Amino acid sequence: MQIEQAKPTEAATVAAVLNEAAQWIAAEGRPLWSAADIAPERIQRDTDAGSYFIARKTGEMDGEVAGVVRLDLEDAHFWPEIESGTSLYVHKLAVRRAWAGHGVPALLLDFARERARSLGRPFLRLDCVADRAPLRALYERNGFVLHSVIHKGERAFARFELPVARLAD
């Protein structure tokens, strides 16, 4: 699997993966992202900013997109108390259904960990709706520890963090 920063011209590809995941989750009776969260103009803006990364299969099926993730340098909405420059934040991790069960989330999270390390950020942080037990278990299997649960409006969100060893100077 190869993971690279999405090019601005790949915003539609990113949006397609996010929409596929959103539709699957909604069909399961667990809607997650709002239409505004994955609106084409928002995806384009974030892709233009270099925030999205695409996981692609290498080898016989070169270039097939398996998943995407957005990595942000700041997250004042869910982590307002965290000092600027100390963390990398994982958002919008999504896997195409055809790649479910192939370890793509773990690969994307490993990539995010290495990216945080290379940026000199000592923590990788993320959040999810607090009642998503399978998602929380996925994060815990990948080394994340529950930091806290916060409330935003009517919903509770679990905040997870992972200490990232810094590169040797």
Score class of each variant (00 low, 15 high):
78 F>M: 14
78 F>T: 06
79 W>I: 03
80 P>N: 02
80 P>T: 03
81 E>H: 12
82 I>P: 04
85 G>F: 09
86 T>I: 07
86 T>G: 05
87 S>P: 01
88 L>I: 11
90 V>Y: 00
90 V>H: 02
91 H>C: 14
92 K>D: 08
93 L>V: 12
93 L>C: 12
93 L>Q: 02
93 L>E: 04
93 L>K: 00
94 A>S: 15
94 A>N: 06
95 V>A: 06
95 V>T: 15
96 R>F: 10
97 R>E: 13
98 A>N: 11
99 W>I: 04
99 W>D: 05
100 A>V: 14
100 A>L: 08
101 G>S: 14
101 G>F: 10
102 H>W: 06
102 H>Y: 15
103 G>S: 11
104 V>M: 12
104 V>W: 00
104 V>T: 12
104 V>F: 04
105 P>L: 11
106 A>Y: 06
107 L>D: 12
108 L>Y: 06
108 L>A: 08
109 L>Q: 01
110 D>T: 14
110 D>L: 14
111 F>P: 02
111 F>V: 09
112 A>C: 13
112 A>N: 06
113 R>P: 05
114 E>P: 02
115 R>K: 12
116 A>N: 01
117 R>W: 08
117 R>T: 08
118 S>G: 11
119 L>T: 02
121 R>G: 04
123 F>G: 00
123 F>M: 11
124 L>K: 05
125 R>Y: 13
125 R>A: 09
125 R>C: 09
126 L>G: 01
126 L>V: 07
126 L>M: 13
127 D>Q: 12
127 D>M: 05
128 C>A: 15
128 C>W: 02
